[in-house]
Design a binder for these strands. Structure first.
Lengths: 346, 346
DNA sequence: TTGAAAGCGCTAACAT
DNA sequence: ATGTTAGCGCTTTCAA
């Protein structure tokens, strides 16, 4: 209806200049308390809302950040966004969202949209298929701060936040050993993704630490899907010496494995223990409850934003070169019935 | 590094004026093909990217929309956002996201952030506790198009997209009757939310259509939580004549009911059939598989955006008064084992 | 088909 | 403590 009130309207009402009003609204030191109070009162009365667009154009800062995720329909990313958003809002930033749908082309489009919109920084989790990082490096070239989370690439000198996948996998495997399992198979994920490679490494390390052999036959190359979990089980069962437990690279893979095992009437956890990774919601509701490693998605989002904030609003004391900065969160184990041979499930 | 190229840079390179370049980039009719081609070539070479902020300030249109959801961590909303985003991108819009965390205060803050950012329109799903709609009406007053989805209020003359809750509940109940269940209990949700009221109504209507009595004792007032499902079962089992099936207002409620039933060794679906609502991911992975009603979240997001687009870019033929516009999606039933007394589960 | 000129609303030098 | 002035990069009349 009425055109929005501007700074000029307030200035007119108070017989001061727009500059004064602007300063008052921004709590500039050199403005008297009186004036500030008066300005705020009139602003309230006129329902003044700052025109961020004009402000951004002039100041070069938009107080918006862009977030690129593979898909908002994946629970994990939903929760990461939740964390980012919570943090961003408390610091006065607005979040632009873009989904890559796992397609590098969309990723590039998203970044262009962000640059075009003038974001002050970008948070991103890589699409599975991304191998060319040119669009991300463009951001760097234009001095737009960038932080990766979860699906990261560590060779570009871009700060990142991840969960300690190695340690998570190590903990999971160690737990299975502690429960008395001795032949532990692993359903692995695509090895060009660092997170999956790290999990495989953690699995191996745990075996070695316990003096158990690492057998290649017990490592099934899967692709993080329910079907791949089923296939892995079929493979394992055909072995002359089948495993007595499975550490799956991800919960859906573990789920597929469990389904196949159930259909073949193999008792979980008695005959076969199962541990997944990600602590998806369904894990605590299926039976037996699925043991898993939580990745702390909300916390990951918060840390990622904090890292980005340091880059967007650098403080003097800044110590470490920021492009060296890596935040690694501790994974949290949730052991349930699927791996409780000694009856110690949660 | 290098400051971003502007329209003026292109103009200089071609010995034309910025106005011409602007028109060429916007595919203005009165510009020669030659010029357009030349402009595009130079733009490419200089890696020119339109400064949306300047463009918005001048034109008054930002090509951004704001989306308010209760929480990105709730799968359903994640998927709605997915749908919105997909549609928005194909039409050249960018999505701003804000989470209310179910708090009306955050909702208001979100709207202020959006107004301030100059969005062209807003999509919103109400926080549970929202009873004062002043902030939403403000948007209307300032001619910022607004569309509600899922958690809507129908008394404000604001267009909305919902799934047909009445019909979904009717279908679910009718299905139970078809499976031979005769005493069907309902675990209801908070009745001040229209979606839950509609589901109760659908349940009642289906009973009546089959000549079955509606018994108040078989309607448990719950609050959409796992615990409330458990409580409902305890209540039902204490009745002199206990029900032989349960239609739960929502999947988590159904899950709670199933857990309680299992602990009491009551066979599902033989002794007690169960149907939920929402078709959450876990439903197909628990055993028995949970029958449920899908709300088509992605489709809901797409329809909501389309409605908003009509308001943001009205076409001449516009027929119906837009504030009367209601889109109702057909729910889709997924019947699984939890209600398959006749052995017809999916 | 193109140019000239003005201005969207705000902020930041520079002045006083 | 406040005013003056200029301009961010773009679009859009109006004019040629």
């Amino acid at each position: 209806m009425n055109p929005r009130a501007t700074i000029a309207d307030i200035a007119k009402a108070l017989n001061v200049t727009p500059a004064t009003v602007s300063r008052a609204l921004n709590d500039h030191p050199g403005i008297s308390q009186e004036t500030k109070k008066a300005v705020r009162k009139v602003a309230e009365k006129l329902q003044y809302k700052r025109n961020k667009i004009a402000s951004s154009l002039r100041s070069g800062r938009s107080h918006m950040i862009g977030v690129i995720i593979p898909s908002a329909a994946i629970n994990f990313f939903g929760e990461v966004v939740h964390g980012i958003e919570a943090m961003a809002n408390t610091y006065g930033y607005t979040v632009l969202l873009y989904q890559s749908n796992e397609l590098p082309d969309y990723e590039r489009k998203g970044i262009e949209a962000f640059v075009s919109a003038g974001v002050d920084g970008v948070l991103a989790s890589l699409a599975k298929g991304t191998v060319d990082f040119g669009h991300y490096l463009d951001l760097k070239r234009h001095n737009v701060p960038l932080v990766f989370f979860d699906r990261v690439n560590d060779e570009l000198g871009i700060p990142s936040v991840v969960v300690d996948d190695f340690r998570g996998a190590y903990t999971a495997t160690e737990h299975l050993i502690g429960q008395g399992y001795r032949r532990i198979g692993h359903i692995a994920g695509q090895q060009h993704l660092k997170i999956f490679k790290d999990r495989l490494a953690g699995y191996k390390a745990a075996l070695e630490a316990s003096g158990l052999p690492v057998e290649e036959k017990l490592i099934y190359q899967g692709d993080v899907s329910i079907e791949s979990g089923r296939r892995a089980v079929r493979h394992f069962l055909e072995l002359p010496e089948r495993p007595d437990a499975i550490f799956a690279v991800e919960d859906y893979t573990a789920l597929g494995a469990m389904k196949e095992l159930k259909e073949r009437k193999i008792q979980i956890p008695e005959e076969m223990g199962v541990v997944g990774f990600a602590n998806e919601v369904f894990g605590e509701h299926i039976s037996p409850g699925l043991s898993s490693i939580d990745q702390q998605p909300a916390q990951m989002g918060k840390e990622a934003f904090k890292l980005l904030l340091e880059m967007m609003e650098p403080r003097k004391e800044a110590v470490v070169a920021l492009d060296q900065k890596r935040v690694t969160l501790a994974p949290i184990a949730f052991f349930r019935q699927s791996s409780a041979r000694n009856g110690e499930g949660a």
